[in-house]
Simulated scan of single mutants.
Amino acid sequence: MGIVEVMNVTKKFPSSNGEVVAVDNISFKVKKGRVFGILGPNGAGKTTTLRMIATIYRPDSGRILVDGIDVIENPNQVRKRIAYMTQEPDLSPALSVRDYIIYYFRFRGLSKREARQRCDYALKTFNLKEHAYKKPFQLSTGLKRRIQLACVLLSNTPLVFLDEPTAGIDPKSKRETWKLIEEMVKEKGMTVLLTSHDLYEVEYLADEVLIINRGRIVAQGAPSELKERFGKTLRVVTRNPIGDFERLKRTLMELEDVKGVNPISANSFEVQLSSLDNPLNEVLQATISQELEVIEIFATTLNFEDVYLNIIDVGGEVDGETQ
């Protein structure tokens, strides 16, 4: 059993043009102790999905279990098992860093003594001691995010939601934050649901990724698996310059396994493929037919960002998600 099980879930919202299907009959599981990334363009359905898991929205149909508990039948029990880091820092302007952290843990049900002890540990672990008595207006965006992160990762809940955890943070602090997330996941054995527009962050942190577009799941797997499945390309180098690239592209796009053709330089181009099994010779022959002399042709692997964009552009593969 996964810590999160989403089964045939659909969610619709009213609009001026009638109902809009935000999430369209999706199903997936999240294993315990993993970082699970949920990706998709704006309006894809990922936020709606997260909010249903967190009991903020109610599914129109289907079922969601968190730690074996139904989100509709026992929402309060589900909320006790999750901690949610919102995209925007929500620190109280009247409270110091120390007071805010203590207040957060008191709100989660800890005694005064336990909350103070947990706060001291948070200040030390997340390098916040020197900022303990500062107010939010005295803090950078990166420090505010670190305070949020300290609260949710030390909540001792089995499931943590991180929504753009490093948004607005400088590159050095971002790397430090990633390491903290890694350490906490290993130490506490928690499961993290991660959403981020930083695809390098997702590739670095996530054990598994779910990609959603237009309300349906279009791909799922480890980042390395998705790169292997969707990142197949050929790089072709010709001796003579490519005079009419558009004509060459039209010829190559007629081949069954070719998904895209992009120029690299005056005498080289890249061919995106759905498979590397057969098309190498076909690409070679099609290129030669355009009176181009091929001097080099080899397979390459796209980076995760390019793979993600290819998946979104192409459409769908697995099953299942808008808003």
Results as ranks from 00 to 15, higher is better:
L193W: 07
E183N: 13
P136A: 11
L210H: 10
A167W: 00
C151I: 03
V209S: 07
E182F: 12
K172C: 14
I211G: 05
Q148F: 10
K174A: 14
S196N: 06
R145W: 04
L159W: 01
S196A: 08
M184L: 15
L143G: 10
K172Q: 14
S140R: 01
G142L: 02
K144S: 08
I212E: 06
Q220L: 15
K144A: 07
L154D: 00
N156Y: 09
R146I: 00
H197S: 15
R145T: 01
C151E: 03
V152D: 00
Q148M: 12
M184G: 01
L194F: 01
S173W: 01
L159Q: 10
V192T: 01
G189A: 09
G215F: 10
R145S: 01
T157C: 09
R146K: 14
T157P: 06
T191V: 08
M184W: 01
E201K: 10
L159H: 11
L154V: 03
M184C: 10
V218H: 02
N156R: 10
E176C: 08
G168M: 01
L199C: 05
L154M: 12
N156L: 09
G215Y: 12
E183H: 12
P171Q: 07
A206D: 13
T177F: 10
A167G: 11
G221K: 08
K174G: 14
I211P: 02
W178D: 07
E187K: 14
L205D: 01
L193P: 09
K144T: 07
S196M: 11
R145C: 07
D163C: 08
C151F: 06
L205H: 04
A167D: 03
K188Y: 11
R146M: 07
F137D: 14
K174S: 15
S155V: 06
D170Y: 04
L199M: 06
T195K: 15
M190F: 14
T177P: 11
L194S: 01
R146P: 03
S173K: 08
E182N: 15
H197R: 09
L153G: 02
A206Y: 14
V160H: 04
C151D: 03
K172L: 12
T195M: 12
I217H: 09
A219P: 04
V209N: 06
L154E: 00
R175M: 10
Y204A: 12
G221R: 07
E201N: 04
L162C: 07
V202H: 00
P165R: 00
V160S: 08
Q138E: 14
G221H: 09
M184H: 08
I217A: 15
E203L: 03
K188W: 09
D198H: 00
